[in-house]
């Protein structure tokens, strides 16, 4: 309670409470009684202190000792007992009804983003994000830097001189281009090829020497003459007149017909390849090519 008036300034709120709880020293008690009898303001303060004390008791805000003194020394009049009854009733009536509202209000207060604490929190968060991004970049450079090759900065071409003048002195002779012949890489198992054209007739067969080994197929390449068809039927015959292999349609590309012949069962001897031009489903023209296999 506030000590508002001059006349009761000598007695603090604490002294008033001690008076009500019978805890004043004898001299202080006597002075208090004298003042109380003559001072209207002190009476008002004592009345309010009575209410406050009853409220505090009803709310359980008093210490154990104060509670005992309250029961023994304060609750001695009917008026005060009734006062406590009102305090308890008011507490029961309002606390439960506003408890939930108070909880909501507390939550609102906590999450009130206008509060300075939230501003600091957001500022800290932003700083943290900035620092973490910078730190990540630096760390990335530390880790990746030694691994990645340094970029060579190519000087920009100058417009003042032509490329020829800039890079090749006009006085010096043009260097001769020397090309070293390189041998093609050896294949462990190369596919033998039979290259045939119109010259490979019965008397002039293409000769192919096969080495011993597992050769699964021969690559046949037949060079066609002018006015050739777009698609051909291929037949392979041996010298005994037996058909060994047939492909129904092989497309001609760039004047050539290329196909593979299974060679595992081909023995040394002469063979005939017959090409029949296919136009739709009708064979119109037949050409024969001969080759010989030796071992």
């Amino acid at each position: 309670m506030i000590e508002e008036r001059k006349s009761s300034i000598t007695f603090s709120d604490d002294a008033i409470r001690r008076f009500l709880l019978r805890r004043l020293a004898a001299r202080e008690q006597s002075a208090f009684e004298q003042t109380l009898m003559a001072d209207d303001d002190l009476e008002s303060r004592v009345r309010l202190a009575e209410v406050a004390l009853a409220d505090d008791y009803a709310r359980g805000l008093l210490t154990g000792n104060e509670e005992r003194q309250f029961r023994e020394s304060f609750l001695v009049t009917d008026e005060r007992k009734q006062m406590l009854g009102v305090s308890e009733t008011l507490n029961r009536r309002f606390r439960s009804s506003v408890e939930s509202a108070s909880l909501i209000q507390n939550v609102k207060t906590i999450f009130d983003f206008r509060q300075p604490v939230w501003r600091y929190a957001f500022a800290a968060l932003i700083l943290l994000l900035v620092f973490s991004t910078v730190w990540r970049k630096i760390k990335e450079q530390i880790v990746v830097g030694p691994i990645t090759p340094k970029r060579v900065v190519v000087p920009k071409p100058s417009a003042t001189q032509s490329p020829i003048v800039a890079h090749h002195p006009t006085t010096s002779p043009i260097p001769n281009h020397v090309e070293e012949s390189t041998s093609p890489p050896d294949h462990q198992i190369a596919t033998p090829a039979v290259v045939l054209d119109g010259n490979n007739s019965v008397g002039n067969p293409f000769e192919l020497k096969l080495r011993d080994g597992n050769i699964d197929s021969l690559r046949a390449q037949i060079v066609l003459g002018e006015n050739h068809s777009t698609s051909y039927r291929v037949e392979l015959w041996d010298s005994k007149g037996e058909s060994l292999f047939t492909i129904n349609a092989v497309a001609a590309r760039d004047g050539k017909v290329i196909f593979d012949i299974p060679s595992r069962n081909l023995s040394a001897g002469e063979y005939l390849i017959r090409l029949k031009a296919v136009e739709g489903f009708t064979s119109e023209e037949t050409q024969s090519y001969y080759f010989r296999i030796t071992r």
């Binding site: 019978r22 009898m37 004592v46 009575e50 020394s73 304060f74 001695v76 009049t77």
Partner: peptide, 9 residues
């Protein structure tokens, strides 16, 4: 009454 009560009466 207040004074008497504070005297423990």
């Amino acid at each position: 009454i207040a004074i008497l009560a504070s005297r423990g009466c």
